[in-house]
Amino acid sequence: MSKFRKNEEKPAPAINTSSLPDIVFMLLFFFMVATTTKEVDPLVKINSAQGAGVTDLTPFKQRGEVDFVYLGEPMKGDVDKFEKGIAVQFDGILSQNGINGIGVWKTEKFRNKPAEVTAPQENIITCFKADEKVPMGIIFTAREILQELNFNSIAYSAQEMGNKSSYSIREQ
């Protein structure tokens, strides 16, 4: 019977991969649109706090009107070296004298700001990106320094809760 011929003569046809680049480019564009670039590598561990009705800082970032202060346990090095085990990071470096460096840092940054940033001093936001366990005392120390220097806008960083209804508050 010739209906059952041996398959060996016909090799499996090659899959056409010419549309693979298109698919990958599509993925690439999706990621380019949906993500934002990292400005600095965090040197502290941050589990962000949860909240509802938060403001998106993207438009402020685009105008260069926001500075970030990172607060949390250091990723490397000895935790005990830092006051209360909380390291403070301004831009790319860990602060040597904790939160008290914020005044110098902000003043320097405002003096050397790019020319296209036209916002007045009191409208430049200082955003605290703090770990959920950071005690408020540190942030209030920073607030006082900022008030003294007339940097009047601040922001408490938090992640939008979405559909979850419970906050992640530490039980004691």
Binding site: F31, K129, L146, E148, A158
Partner: peptide
């Protein structure tokens, strides 16, 4: 792009410190 970008947006509560 996967490596150099982050997915989460920066969101926060904006507050003002009263003028001294």
């Amino acid at each position: 792009f996967l490596v150099t970008t982050t997915m989460d947006k920066d969101t926060a509560y904006l507050r003002m410190i009263p003028k001294k």
